[in-house]
């Protein structure tokens, strides 16, 4: 086979997610009363990138065949923290941003330490740490409130040169700074290898522990970037249990839509980003078709159920029935 065929096979999930997103977004803008204008794109991208960051975070962990059910809570916690710290003069704001990102990294590292060195199951461990992170968020913001450096917020949520949404540029920058180096480094390869077959990776001397730890820690960092952006959009911090939970749930949906295998070792954060954008667009489709907003949770749930059921098509390719049981 030629090289490009390998590349195509590897990127099939990502390309499918991109295609779904383009189709959905075309339907969305075609029926939007304002049409395809810079304003519509800006609003859509501002809503989309929040989920995209959290979905990237989830991807890193899912690649190692784990799952992080605390991403939504890290997102909420960093949102509350940012509403205290990211304010004041330029230096203070910069310090606040670093502190918020550091907190996210620390939360992710704690998850990683418990799962990898404590050898607990990721599901239970991250549900428990999620409760802790939410508790801390509630301590920081018992009631919604706080504020943020509005110059920075407006710069990052506005438009560059009047056309390009700044949040999309930020998302692109994060991909270049975090995801690309990670996925090409030894640690990133180790994370993929650990998710694909931990035993084989261990036997081959791949640093699986460090790779998985890096994945969990970076997931915390990405969730914190999401939390930071939430603060930039809303100007407040809010420890909302329902919203944190929803982001965790939607991040899994986005990861599945983005072609990342939940059994680990397959997929990319780029796919998850398109999955997230597509999921958001599908949710917003209801508004342009003038449905009652009450139907939105049901609609999103059904889309989610259908999206995960699509994975069942792989069953048709199974030749030996024993392969049903992993």
């Amino acid at each position: 086979m030629k090289d490009w065929r390998y590349w195509l096979a590897e990127q099939r999930g990502t390309l499918l997610a991109l295609a779904i997103f383009i189709v959905m977004f075309a339907i969305y803008t075609a029926n939007h009363p304002a049409g395809f204008t810079a304003n519509v794109v800006q609003t859509a991208s501002n809503k989309g990138v929040l989920l995209a960051f959290v979905a990237m975070a989830q991807t890193l962990v899912v690649i190692t065949a784990g799952i992080d059910l605390s991403v939504g809570m890290i997102f909420t916690l960093t949102n509350c923290l940012a509403s205290w710290l990211v304010i004041g003069t330029g230096l203070e704001t910069a310090f606040g941003v670093v502190a918020v990102l550091g907190t996210g990294l620390l939360c992710g590292a704690i998850n990683g330490a418990i799962v990898i060195y404590g050898r607990l199951q990721p599901i239970v461990a991250t549900i428990a740490t999620g409760a802790v992170y939410f508790g801390i968020a509630l301590l920081l913001r018992p009631f919604p409130g706080g504020s943020v450096n509005e110059d920075l917020a407006d710069a990052l949520t506005g438009r560059l040169f009047g056309v390009v949404p700044a949040s999309l540029v930020a998302l692109f920058a994060v991909v270049l700074i975090v995801w690309v180096p990670f996925s090409r480094s030894v640690l990133g390869r180790a994370a993929y290898a650990a998710g694909s077959s931990e035993t084989a990776a261990y036997m081959s001397g791949v640093p699986i522990r460090r790779g998985k730890f890096a994945a969990y820690a970076l997931a915390g960092l990405l969730a914190a970037i999401g939390g930071l952006f939430l603060t930039f959009f809303t100007y407040t911090g809010d420890a909302a249990y329902a919203s944190g939970n929803a982001y965790t749930l939607f991040s899994i949906a986005a990861v599945v839509l983005g072609g990342v295998s939940l059994f680990g070792g397959k997929g990319s954060a780029i796919g998850a980003i398109f999955g997230a954008l597509a999921f958001r667009t599908i949710g917003d489709l209801l508004f342009v078709f003038d449905f009652d907003p009450l139907w939105q949770p049901l609609f999103q749930g059904v889309i989610l159920l259908i999206a995960v059921s699509l994975g069942a098509f792989a069953l048709f390719r199974v030749r030996n029935r024993l392969e049903w049981f992993l």
């Binding site: 799952i67 599901i123 749930l249 899994i252 949906a253 599945v256 939940l262 059994f263 009450l294 139907w295 939105q296 949770p297 049901l298 609609f299 999103q300 749930g301 059904v302 989610l304 159920l305 995960v308 059921s309 994975g311 069942a312 069953l315 049903w324």
Partner: peptide, 30 residues
């Protein structure tokens, strides 16, 4: 979902949870 479609239980139960929530939101009007 879990037994016949072989979807990981964590995922399919999250999805049915979301559907059940959606149904109840529609039913109660929020």
């Amino acid at each position: 979902g879990v037994a016949y479609l072989r979807i990981p239980s964590m995922i399919v139960t999250l999805a049915t949870n979301a559907v059940a929530q959606g149904l109840m939101v529609v039913y109660t009007g929020g």
